[in-house]
């Protein structure tokens, strides 16, 4: 079956900034892929390239087999209903002068789908699906809470029944208890409606909850792609190991028994990324070769994981980075 999204060797440069520097990633039909990375990794830029909110420098973005990377805006317009994006901050992505009903119906209107009456019915149906009462149709975004606004964004994004939803940090601006309900909602909508989803976040816990596969990005490149359970149980790339180790587990009994990997230094500039492996300047286990040869993203292990690291063997054996860390000196 043709995957819903196929990104091939995608490059996006902003002047000298190499934000995305050759990324290939596939999202299957009805699959949720988590794209994880820290600030400056290029994950949001990748999401914007996929939905063509920014022009692509080179590479392919195939949606259900059709490459949209370099299509003109005009040629792109009729295809847009098939892929949508929701953002972190719904208050800045919802038009404050439009009612909730008009906001949700807008994609239908723009793509001339249905009559005014069927669009109204569709809006009520969508509100119900995202768990909002029907009477919010006449409300304005400012009258709603952050969680409710994010529900409106989701209803709008899904109104034209897209086959791909890109979700860029959809819960990061929300409170803990509201986050849970939005994560549950995204999961439920995805199961009910069957769209494919590229879920972009810095929050490993929400990826663990929602995604079937996880891709980890560092400084414009993917360093690891693996099934969720495999990635969380046995991360292979040293950066993935560090990222998992740094994210605190909300349970003191577990958290305080962990041996943590604390990376030194900062993420280097994407204007002048390090030669060889881009992570080698901060990698606790890097060897000479890492500063010279670029490690390709290659299949390792029996379960089809992809890892870009010289130190990971073909059978999937990976260096244990925490063992290279000094023991905690100030235990607590």
């Amino acid at each position: 079956m043709t995957p819903t999204l196929e990104i091939v060797d995608l490059v996006k440069h902003f002047g000298p900034v190499r934000a995305v520097d050759g990324v290939s990633l596939t999202v299957g039909v009805g699959e949720v892929v988590g794209l994880v990375g820290e600030s400056g990794s290029g994950k949001s830029t990748l999401g914007r390239c996929v939905t063509r909110l920014v022009p692509v420098t080179s590479g392919q973005v195939r949606i259900r087999g059709r490459d949209i990377a370099l299509l003109s805006r005009r040629a792109l317009r009729p295809l847009r209903r098939d892929f949508t994006i929701v953002f972190q901050d719904p208050s800045s992505s919802l038009n404050p002068r439009m009612t909730v009903g008009d906001i949700i119906a807008e994609p239908l209107r723009l793509h001339r789908l249905g009559s005014a009456a069927t669009r109204r019915a569709r809006v009520i149906d969508l509100l119900d699906q995202v768990g909002l009462p029907a009477d919010v149709v006449r409300r304005y975004p400012h009258e709603l809470s952050g969680g409710q606004r994010q529900r409106v964004s989701l209803a709008r994004a899904l109104s034209a029944s897209p086959s791909l939803l890109v979700a860029d940090e959809p819960t990061s601006a929300l409170d803990v208890s509201v986050q849970a309900s939005v994560l549950n909602l995204v999961g439920r909508l995805q199961r009910d409606l069957g769209f494919a989803c590229l879920f972009i976040t810095h929050d490993l816990a929400s990826v663990e909850f929602l995604a079937q596969r996880v891709a980890v990005m560092y400084l414009g490149l993917l360093v690891e792609i693996a099934d969720r359970a495999e990635l969380f149980a046995a991360p292979r790339h040293p950066y993935t190991q560090a990222l998992l180790s740094a994210a605190p587990i909300p349970d003191p009994a577990v958290q305080r028994a962990r041996r943590r990997i604390v990376l030194s230094g900062d993420v280097p500039s994407p204007v002048d990324p390090p030669p060889g492996c881009r992570f080698h300047t901060r990698c606790p286990v890097a060897v000479e070769r890492c500063a010279v040869d670029v490690p390709p993203l290659r299949p390792v292990g029996p379960a089809g994981a992809l890892v870009a690291c010289h130190l990971v063997d073909d059978d999937g054996t990976a260096p244990e980075v925490s063992a290279a860390m000094p023991a905690p000196s100030l235990g607590s």
Binding site: S145, S177, A180, S181, L183, R188, L204, F209, D251
Partner: peptide, 25 residues
């Protein structure tokens, strides 16, 4: 209790969904 249950925990996968706290502060 509600706050603790609402947070996804990578150390134990929440198959049945995260617990939500209904309503607003």
């Amino acid at each position: 209790r509600g706050l603790l249950d609402a947070v996804p925990n990578p150390a134990r996968h929440a198959d049945g969904g995260l617990r939500e706290i209904p309503g607003r502060v």
